[in-house]
Design a protein around this nucleic acid. Structure first.
Lengths: 134, 134
DNA sequence: CCTATTTCGGTATTTGAGCACCAGAATAAA
DNA sequence: TTTATTCTGGTGCTCAAATACCGAAATAGG
């Protein structure tokens, strides 16, 4: 039982959480609220938002009435940006045996995987936080 | 550090291993030979080929001069077939929060993920064992 | 038969991601 | 200045997937 595309729950929570932050702009949104809305663990969300904060995509405020706000317009934040922050670095797929040494001169994968994952990469660029309306 | 597309080393070894089997047809190919060619663990390859055998895609022969042969033409074996055997079942990606409950009526993902992974699925169908030439 | 070879299949181990916990630091409000 | 609230960041746990191990079963060849 496997998904074709690698999207961790963390990446998904980051995206949805940020969508909520965008929605509530310019008010701050705190982890507790996000956890309720997303039916997720506070601890886990807190960790994810720490990373997002460090990346500069959001700003954080401690203390009572604290929380998070976007640090740039929602139109300028893509799923690719978020994905890259949460999953550290994106690698376009190639023949998975290339490191250990694919035995074939003309690998059966050809450029198929590279092309496909390049498409995927471009698609992720087009999903923006501002796509969301409710 | 994350790959966009989920391809385990097992799936990759299965594909490359089968390509070697196809190449040597109609002779049998054993695990030891495959392990050398692919610079991989015998134990791991053995397990993978057990699964492939059970699925009917190959036939196995025990004992001296034993090994594996394809059980159908290379043209009729796609990467999708192999992937599904090794990874058990493919799930097309959708909003990863749909199970626990995406909070948005119009999910930010829309049908994007579903469409993208459907494309991926179709692409995997077109990579056949017979694509390989050397 | 007997032996060497090879797959079979159950089980054990490893590893890494996902997730949780908790004490500490910052800050708003009274 | 005190208290309650909220993020911070280090560490520790958990669990499933990936991988390894090993004795058993099959069989080809002599």
């Amino acid at each position: 039982m496997s998904h074709l595309i690698n999207i961790s729950e963390a990446a998904s929570l980051a995206l949805h959480g940020l969508a909520i932050v965008a929605q509530n702009s310019p008010n701050k949104v705190n982890v507790k609220y996000l956890a309720e809305k997303l039916d997720a663990s506070e601890a886990h969300l807190a960790k994810i938002f720490q990373r997002l904060n460090k990346s500069g995509i959001i700003r954080s405020f401690r203390g009572p009435k604290g929380g998070f706000v976007l640090n740039k317009p929602a139109k300028e934040i893509s799923f690719l940006d978020i994905y890259e922050i949460v999953e550290s670095k994106i690698i376009l797929n190639d023949c998975p045996l290339h490191k250990t040494g694919c035995p074939f001169e003309n690998c059966i994968f050809g450029n198929a995987l590279k092309n496909i994952s390049k498409n995927l990469y471009e698609s992720f660029k087009y999903i923006k936080l501002s796509n969301f309306n409710e």
